[in-house]
């Protein structure tokens, strides 16, 4: 079963920030990490990824710089900023809260227990 993009669209930025919290990275590497972690169940399209990069850079959550690939070609790397780290923490906290609320809402018998 693959994961519907609608289910986690609101957390795209947090997912990307999570990858950058481990170190600077570039588009393909981040996309590949997401596919690997989810066992191929979720994949961020390249266009979605780069749209998010642009949005997050505009918002000051990440910054970018040009580096070199193994083959010597130019490649844009992304780095999380302090503001991005804060946004990541808020995103994780928000997700945990959402997860708790949703779990309570959909758990069988929850209403009767309350």
């Amino acid at each position: 079963m693959s994961i519907s993009p609608d289910e986690i669209r609101g957390y795209t930025d947090t997912i990307i920030l999570a990858r950058l919290m481990d170190g600077d990275s570039y588009g393909y590497e981040i996309g590949k990490a997401i596919r690997t972690i989810t066992g191929g169940l979720y994949e961020l399209k390249e266009a979605t990824l780069y749209t998010a990069f642009h949005r997050m850079e505009q918002a000051g959550l990440i910054s970018s710089y040009w580096g070199e690939s193994e083959g010597g070609a130019r490649r844009r790397y992304y780095r999380v900023t302090e503001k991005g780290k804060l946004a990541y923490s808020e995103g994780v906290a928000g997700w945990n809260e959402t997860k708790r609320i949703i779990s309570e809402l959909i758990e069988r018998g929850g209403i009767h227990d309350a």
């Binding site: 588009g27 393909y28 996309g31 390249e46 780069y50």
Partner: peptide
């Protein structure tokens, strides 16, 4: 042009993978 290069680089990497 830069955006095109980045997407092309990613797609080719994916292809090789």
């Amino acid at each position: 042009k830069e955006l095109y290069s980045e997407l092309t680089d990613s797609a080719i990497s994916r292809y090789e993978e």
